[in-house]
């Protein structure tokens, strides 16, 4: 299990170290990313309610959150 986890963690690490420089868009090409519906958490209220429901009914919670993407403005 531990080895599996380490491998799993390597994926984002590799993506962030090697892949990133070639990935992405220019600052003026973020028109679609700037849309509210493209935000990682596009409906924070729904997400909060859902978290509360599933936290109360199931044994798992959290693990999501954090932003990124978006307009890239300022």
């Amino acid at each position: 299990m531990k080895i599996k986890l380490k491998r799993l963690l390597l994926v984002p690490l590799i993506v962030s170290v090697t892949g990133c420089a070639n990935l992405g868009v220019e600052p003026w090409e973020r028109d679609l990313l700037a849309k509210k519906e493209m935000a990682l958490t596009s409906s924070p209220i729904d997400a909060t309610f859902d978290d509360h429901i599933y936290f109360s009914k199931e044994a798992s919670s959290g693990g999501k959150g954090f932003g990124g993407g978006g307009c890239g403005c300022n």
Binding site: E26, W28, G72, C73
Partner: peptide, 9 residues
């Protein structure tokens, strides 16, 4: 934008 190397919006 490319010519002037625009860094943000």
């Amino acid at each position: 934008a490319k010519h002037f190397k625009i860094k943000g919006m």
